[in-house]
Amino acid sequence: MKSRLLRNVLGSLLSFVLVMGIWQAIVVWGQVAPYIAPRPLDAFRAISGDWSTLWPLTLWTLRETVYGFLAGAVLGVVFGIVMHKIAMLQRVLYPILIVTQAIPIVALAAPLVLMLGFNLGPKIVIVAWIVFFPVTVNVLDGLTHVDGDLLTLARVLGARRWRTFLVIEVPAAIAPLFSGLKIGATYAVTGAIIGEMAASSGSSLALYQHNANANLNAAAVYGTTLIMTAIGISWFLLIVSLEFWATPWRRRVTARRRRIGGKHK
């Protein structure tokens, strides 16, 4: 177990070094001008030099991402369950859900600002808008494809319907739920940044980057991108860890907690 974790961390580190190496190589050997693309180290230096400004902005973007993600996840789960339970609703809602995803997000931003102002509101809506869809689809799929034999088993044991739902169907849908959440997690930060681009008064990471670009400060532009990416990756990793923790039966031989009726000898 431990060694697998170690290998994963090592692999991630290696891929980070690899990407930075390629970046460095392109800039140096391609003789790219520093105002077009900085070297990796310069990008890092640019953000660390202005950290006192960037840190609050980062936290702000992180907050938009997290709130929006949570809203989207909850919405997605609710939609998934409701659509699974009520077939008619599924037929009515499914086309609508697909339409929501066909609308270009950028086009959505302007009216949202009008409705919700320049604050947290529109960003949360945009992020949730992006996140809920893969969650709904995966939860619905998971619930639809619960192993029929297990449902039969529940009937044999004389189960009530809602207990079957809680004890059999919900756990069976956890793995698909996390597939949806992971897709949502990678897109969430993109949604937040789109929201910031379309609806920022005052300051935000997107605006900061926009200004850096206007000043031909490529190092800061790339640096800001690194921060945004880091937010996305951290959130994704958190979800993956959560999945790891929530589905022990997929990788462990025994349960973690020792809960038994009698004293264990």
């Binding site: 039969t152 044991l157 004389g158 189960a159 207990r163 756990p171 069976a172 956890i174 349960a255 009726g261």
Partner: peptide
Amino acid sequence: LLVPWRTVLGNITLGARLTRRLTYDDR
């Protein structure tokens, strides 16, 4: 048929869990 996310103990007591409240005695 065993439920993959339940332990041996959880599978033995599955019937109780599906029909009523699982008691200390069941376990």
